[in-house]
């Protein structure tokens, strides 16, 4: 078993670390567009009686504790 698996990480964790680091290793002209994919933003609207009730804009930034976000 690999060390990261033994430490409780999954391949999903592995994959997202690898993808983020790959984006950081791009030439500057490609990096900017790629790093936008590091951020995931979600907008949630609750509907009640056929009407949009309230809107909660939510911005999530997926970062690992040990790896600082760019």
């Amino acid at each position: 078993m690999s060390a990261w698996r033994a430490a409780g990480l999954t391949y999903i964790d592995y994959s997202s670390i690898a993808a983020r680091l790959l984006r950081r290793a791009l030439k500057p002209e490609f990096r900017k567009a790629a790093e936008k994919r590091d951020e995931v933003s979600v907008r949630i609207t609750y509907w009640k009686d056929g009407k949009a009730n309230r809107e909660y804009p939510m911005y999530l930034l997926y970062c690992y504790s040990t790896l600082p976000c760019a």
Partner: peptide
């Protein structure tokens, strides 16, 4: 966990 993430 930090070690494992850094090793990856």
């Amino acid at each position: 966990q930090a070690k494992a993430e850094a090793a990856i």
